[in-house]
Amino acid sequence: MFKTITSQIVPIPRRDIDTDMIIPAEFLTCTVKTGLGKYLFAHVRESEKDFELMNRFNNSQIIVARQNFGCGSSREHAAWTLYDWGIRVIIAPSFSDIFKSNATKNGVLPVILPEKVVESILNDAIYSDSYIVNVDLPDQRVQLPTGNTHRFEIDSYPKTLLLKGADDLDYLLSYAKEIRLFNEKHAGDIFFNVVNL
């Protein structure tokens, strides 16, 4: 499913981009995962200067942002919204735990690069109309227009998940027997009762 992405990047020189910014709560009344792209950065795209290039580079598949991307609410809608808009890669120095997990389940690759590298990308890309980056997931490499390449780390499991586009529910279901045996033993440590309510 996911191999390499070559695309103009959208530089968003902002840290702590929270999932409320990615998709505000008023758009969470949907009951499906699709068609949310139009709400991406709905409240900040026009009003916050850091997001202005989002409008110009609207075919880009890569966002580059500062630290702690995806913090706040656990809404997986954030990953669905980015994917639906066309984003396949987010490059940042760090991510929130929940967002990172949601992204890799939905075809969006979080790439962690050192802050210094991210800063230089942001710096160069803001003044360029053709800042094309190549992201190679199998090789775990990002190639910049300067020719410089940077290796990034990703756990083997989410990597496989992204490469195969697989669903980890199938993996869990293949352990149905172990889960049943575990629960038989574990039942003695559970004391709450939903049935009484």
Partner: peptide, 20 residues
């Protein structure tokens, strides 16, 4: 802890999650 909707479906189907 909080989880995304895909993980919500994992717990619904198996009572389990994949966690580091």
């Amino acid at each position: 802890f909080g989880i995304g909707s895909t993980e919500v479906s994992h717990v619904m189907a198996t009572g389990c999650l994949l966690q580091k």
